[in-house]
Structures are given as structure tokens and as C-alpha cells.
Write a protein that binds this DNA or RNA. Structure first.
Lengths: 274, 274
DNA sequence: CGATCAGTTGAAGGGTCTCAACGCGAGTGG
DNA sequence: CCACTCGCGTTGAGACCCTTCAACTGATCG
């Protein structure tokens, strides 16, 4: 029991800083930046209302908000990466998702007023923070942003659905493949390379996200690499055969019926097994 | 491959009816009903704008929208129950969630304009439908409802997070316990009994939702009943020991270290095994 | 009354969990 | 500078839970 208290204390110790709160010089400039970040086309002459949007900077390991905290704002990732997670009573950490540039954080808290999950920066990151009081009337003051927020929330809901699809796949290698493909797609949307991935999260985080043991993640990386789909060097992953990986990721439970779904029937693995 | 096409055709055959579309007599009355449904306190004299909200009735097995369909409205469950699901290329059906009274359907479609998942009525059900064109300006025309929709969406996002927690539990019995507890809570919020549950979904749906085989769900029901937590009669479930079931549901992976977390170390099961 | 589907139960096999041990790098203080 | 610690990542071996295939019962339906 004592180590659980320890864990909580650790988190509390990390939290108080909450990053540095920087108010940008001109509120209108920040609004324009946020609009651009969320995908709006904004020309220089467009008139926008003034909103009290702060932006925070966080270092790796700092939490944006912790579990159970009273919600006071929703956030938009400007740079970096976050993990969203919940901690069970026995200390087991369940990762619910990862957020990168352009995604929304803290929306879950609207239902009850408190955050049902925590968000931690995985690297040097920054966010825009919109106070909840402002968000309530956003539809009237800046409908354009309101719509973009809806899109982002919708996307978050969609990704949670994809999470279910990952955890539903029986084979651990398939889960990992789907995870990497999702990551690749999202990195592509951010403007980064969809083939060369730099993983910001630990194997343990991935394991929790996929619902398997972290040793299994390690072994699955090995399997996908032996397979030829990708090349792995610690947290650097290069996807070598994107179409092949996609095809492989389609395997659901009770996958192989006619043997053609699986491009190659685990060549190396069979050799090792026999 | 042919049976996949068959599946798609089946769904198409069911869909065209899309329930009966009934425009309520007075648009304002419907708005008030919807506001009440979503949890607002509305007195009789309150002035509400007129919105073109339809309400549809669906019979068991009918789909509200199918996967990939272009989104034209978001829906609010007025009565009945729905399952939200996606179908993989090989025909495997992944259930992402169940929606009951007061919950929102179709919000996921905002990100891309098409529904990433399908929604099917599990029993005689009805929904209010708000056209997307109206929803865009909802913040300006009826901020009160806009806020309530945000709450509902936030709740949906939360429940998807809970889905992850269910699938993360290693033991199938724990997954089922968590599922039943979630269902119990939601039924309680709807005004129904939280102890006597009438399951609207099949074992197969539950299995897909929990990420296990449907035989395993069957066995888990048996185990929880032998255990004494509940009584099961087909789709009628009575929770006999709610605190006990809650305690049991807290077991995460690598549960038992000191033996006290688990109230009773599977008495019957051990007997059967030895 | 045959057909189909939902639900249950049994038996066998396999994939993953768990417990180990090991190498590695970063941070730390002697 | 170099042990020392700690966390991350990897790999191996055994146990166990779940999947899969199978058979059986009831219920619904044409």
C-alpha cells in the first residue's frame, strides 16, 4: 500500500510547476495562431475577437492536469506529445491515448467538471489553454473556432474507437502493427514523415495502450522486424513495407481461413518454433 | 470473399427504411422535449427558438446509420438502446459501445463528414435527429442545448475510455464485472433499477465489446454467478452483491500479490480444477 | 418439422503472462 | 573518474488462461 502513496506523491511533486504560463503579447495574435493550428485558413486582415488564451510550456514528465483535478480549461497541443492515462487503485497505469499537434485535451472533463484522466508531456511540449468560462460562449463569439473544436473532439472520439480495434485484435503483433499505422498516419497529417517514426513513448506506455505486457511489445517489435515490415532501433522505427504492414494489420481474430489473408506465414517464427 | 459482399448487402437491405420519420406537430414542443431529455430544467413559459428537429422510430435490428455513410444529422436517444460497431473486411464485427436514453449518436462523423461506425437499434427505439446544418449554428441559436450536447459528447468520450479499461483487464471475469457495473450505473442514471438488468445485447455483442470470445463470456457469467456476485437467467441479470462485485472488478493485471485484494480466491473454480 | 440462431458446456492446443536474468545508458555522488 | 543506482529494453522458460472446434439444448420462424 505504501508504494501507492509514493506514486501519488511523485505525481504531486512533478505537477505544481504546471509548466510556465506565458500570456502572449497580443491576445488577437494568439487567437489567429490557434485558428491556424486547428486547420483554419486565416488571412491577415481577418477580424477576430479578443479571447484570453494563454499558452503553457511543459517539459518532459510534467503533467498538464492530473486525474480527478477540477477542470478549468481545455487545451490544444501546439507542439510536442502527451499521453492520456488513468491510474488504478493498485498503481496500474492505463494509457488511453496519445495526443500530438492540433489535438484537444481535457474535453472529457465537461461531463462531470473534473478530469477523468491525466495528461503528461512525453517531451518538451506546449499547449494553448482556453478557459472553460470562455469555451461556454465560444459558439457565439467565434463560431469558426467552435466548429474546429467540434472536429477535433470528433477526431478524439474516433481515435478512442480505433483503440478498441487495436485491443480487439488477438495477436499482439497485429495490435502493434495497427498502432504504428495509426501513428504513421497522424504524423503524416502533422507534416512529419510517415515512414520514419520517432516514438516519444516508452515500451511500457505502448504496452498499456495496447493491453499487453511490455515484454510482449518488445517481442512483437522483433517479430515485425524479422518479418521485414519495419526496421527498429530502440525508439526509432522505419516502416519498410507500408502496404505489407497494412495488409498484415487487417488480420482480426480467427484470422486465417484460406491462408491467403496472411501474406507470409511467419517464416522466421516457424523456423524458431521447430 | 463472397460472404463479405453478402454481409454488406444484408445491411443495405435492412437499412433503407431508416425507421419512420415523424415530424412532431409543433417544432417548439420538440425542442423543449429534447432539452428535457438532455437534462435541462425547462419551465413551461420559457421561450425557445424553433428548430427543425425530427424524431425517428426504429425497430430492433434497424440501423440508424451505417458505416461509411455520409453524415447529415446527429441523433439523441429518446428511448431504447443502440449498439455502435464497425465491421472489418473479413466480416468481424467490433462493438465500440452501447447507447441508451439521453446519449448522443453520430458525433464521430463531424471529423470527416462520414460515419466511421454504424449504429443499430437493439430493441424498439426512437431518436431525435438534429440536422448538421442546424448543429453548426447551435451555439448561436440555443446555447443551452449546445452546452448539453457538449456534456453528452464528453460523456461519450469518457465511456470510450472506460472501454479501454475493460479490455485492459486480463481476466475475462473482471472485464465482464466492469461491464455489468457500468451498465448498472447507466441504468440507474436513466431511472431504471441498477440491480436488475435486462440485457438488450447478445452474448456475441458483449464478447466483441469486451474483446473476448463469446464462449468466454458465457463461462464468465457462470463464474460470476457461482461466485455469488450475481444471478443470471439468460438476458436477465440480478446483481446480488454490488460492493463485492465492485471490489472484484478492481483487479487489474498482475492482480494478486498479497492475496487480500481478491476477497475469495475462486472457491468453486479451484474445486473444479483440482 | 426442419432450419437457423443464441446460449451453454467440454476438450485440446497455443499465445501471452509472469518471473527471471542480462545489457545498456543516464544521472549521481563518492 | 568511476562505481553505483535506476529505469528502459531485450530475451528465455514455464504456467495458465483463453481461443478454437465441437456437440448439445431451446427458442423462434417459415
Amino acid at each position: 500500500m505504501s508504494h501507492i502513496v509514493q506514486l501519488v506523491q511523485d505525481r504531486a511533486r512533478v505537477q505544481p510547476a504546471m509548466g510556465t504560463a506565458d500570456m502572449a503579447c497580443d491576445p488577437r495574435t494568439v487567437v489567429v495562431q490557434l485558428l491556424r493550428l486547428m486547420g483554419a485558413q486565416v488571412d491577415r486582415l481577418q477580424v477576430v475577437p479578443s479571447l484570453p488564451i494563454a499558452w503553457h510550456r511543459l517539459r518532459a514528465g510534467e503533467t498538464l492536469h492530473h486525474e480527478g483535478a477540477v477542470a478549468d480549461a481545455i487545451h490544444f497541443v501546439r507542439a510536442g506529445a502527451f499521453k492520456i492515462y488513468r491510474t488504478a487503485e493498485d498503481g496500474y497505469e492505463q494509457v488511453l491515448g496519445f495526443a500530438v499537434r492540433g489535438e484537444v485535451l481535457g474535453f472529457e472533463a465537461l461531463a462531470n467538471g473534473t478530469h477523468p484522466s491525466a495528461a503528461m508531456a512525453l517531451e518538451e511540449s506546449s499547449v494553448y489553454s482556453l478557459p472553460l468560462t470562455e469555451f461556454q460562449s465560444l459558439g457565439q463569439r467565434l463560431p469558426e473556432l467552435d466548429l474546429l473544436v467540434h472536429r477535433a473532439v470528433s477526431g478524439a472520439l474516433m481515435r478512442r474507437g480505433e483503440l478498441a480495434e487495436m485491443m480487439a485484435a488477438v495477436a499482439a503483433e497485429v495490435r502493434l502493427a495497427r498502432f504504428l499505422l495509426q501513428l504513421s498516419r497522424r504524423m503524416g497529417e502533422c507534416g512529419e514523415s510517415p515512414r520514419r517514426l520517432h516514438l516519444r513513448m516508452s515500451r511500457r506506455d505502448i504496452a498499456s495502450y495496447l493491453g499487453v505486457a511490455h515484454e510482449t511489445v518488445s517481442r512483437s517489435f522483433g517479430a515485425l522486424a524479422r518479418w521485414g515490415w519495419l526496421r527498429v532501433d530502440n525508439r526509432e522505427v522505419e516502416i519498410l513495407d507500408l502496404p505489407g504492414l497494412k495488409q498484415f494489420s487487417l488480420n482480426t481474430r480467427r484470422a486465417v481461413d484460406e491462408g491467403i489473408h496472411l501474406p507470409a506465414p511467419r517464416p522466421e517464427l516457424r523456423l524458431c518454433a521447430t
